[in-house]
């Protein structure tokens, strides 16, 4: 065998070995990283945090938001814990977010993992308060309503609904969370007097459903008139818009002699 072909074979073997090393070690490394990233879907992030995947990509794990928080609400996750390593989080039952109007944590973030698009702290959506109706004192009929009173957006994020209480003349006061206003600050979770909080903050994707575009709540006057109900464009042959005589409901099932 010539010297050249031995050299070539050596090179090819080295190349294969190098590739194998890179591929196996790289796969293992990527697996570790992916495991760590999905460590805890319940992590609550500081105000203005991007969606979890973008947040994990952009957060440089410097802890400047933790330094800036005047209430020691924010913590930086240690290695080997439930929360993705080195990222900021808070546990509302321990210390909630007190919604500083100047948002110092967000201002301290150098990378934009906490998005500077958030201008008003009341627009932050760190999570959503969820009430366990079975263990809520107010829903049991006691006059608690502490979460409502403590809520920084009371009357908006948490409203009270009165319900008759059997034959008693005293009404029941049910706290109800409105996701249009709830910031997820967790002051309610901190304040809840039950031994395990009956109201707690969870990330939106863990609790919030989505109706879907195809459902029409026809009986509500607030239902938007959507594209399909608008008159057709002038270029198309004008189809006579059938306006039902009756209120929309189940009656259409009786049409056509069914």
């Amino acid at each position: 065998m010539s010297d050249k072909s031995v050299k070539r074979r050596d090179f090819l073997v080295k190349l294969a070995q190098g590739s194998a090393l890179a591929a196996t070690a790289g796969t293992l490394w990527a697996y570790m990283v992916k495991q760590e990233v999905r460590a805890h879907p319940y992590a609550l992030r500081p105000p203005g945090a991007l969606a979890e995947h973008d947040f994990n990509a952009l957060c440089i794990k410097c802890g400047q938001c933790v330094n800036a928080c005047p209430y020691d609400t924010l913590k930086l996750a240690g290695a080997g814990g439930d929360i993705p390593i080195g990222t900021p989080f808070f546990k509302p039952r321990e210390i909630p977010c007190y919604l500083c109007p100047d948002i110092p944590c967000l201002k301290a973030c150098p990378t934009g993992a906490l998005s500077p698009k958030l201008k008003n702290i009341n627009d932050s959506r760190m999570g959503l308060a969820v009430i366990d109706l079975e263990h809520c004192l107010s829903w049991k009929g006691l006059r608690c309503e502490i979460c409502h009173r403590e809520c920084p957006l009371k009357g908006k994020a948490i409203v009270l609904e009165t319900h008759p209480r059997g034959i008693s003349k005293h009404a029941m006061f049910f706290p109800i969370v409105n996701s249009d206003y709830c910031t997820g600050c967790g002051i309610c979770e901190k304040a809840c007097p039950t031994s395990e909080p009956a109201i707690r903050i969870l990330p939106h994707q863990m609790v919030q459903g989505k109706i879907g575009e195809h459902y029409r709540l026809g009986w509500t006057f607030e239902t938007e008139i959507t594209q399909e109900f608008k008159p057709a464009a002038p270029s198309a042959p004008p189809a006579p818009a059938e306006v039902p005589k009756q209120a929309p409901g189940m009656d259409y099932l009786n049409e056509g002699g069914l």
Binding site: W29, A30, M32, V33, K34, E36, V37, H53, N56, A57, I60, K61, G63, V66, K75, L76, A77, G78, A79, G80, G81, P84, I85, G86
Partner: peptide, 27 residues
């Protein structure tokens, strides 16, 4: 490939200075 800063998520250097400055984990 993974969409997150690969070394920062496993870096023992990061673990060490974070855990000295911000509190202990298993670093």
């Amino acid at each position: 490939i993974t969409g997150v800063a690969a070394f920062e998520w496993v870096s023992p250097i990061g673990m060490m200075h974070r855990e000295i400055i911000f509190g202990f984990g298993l670093g």
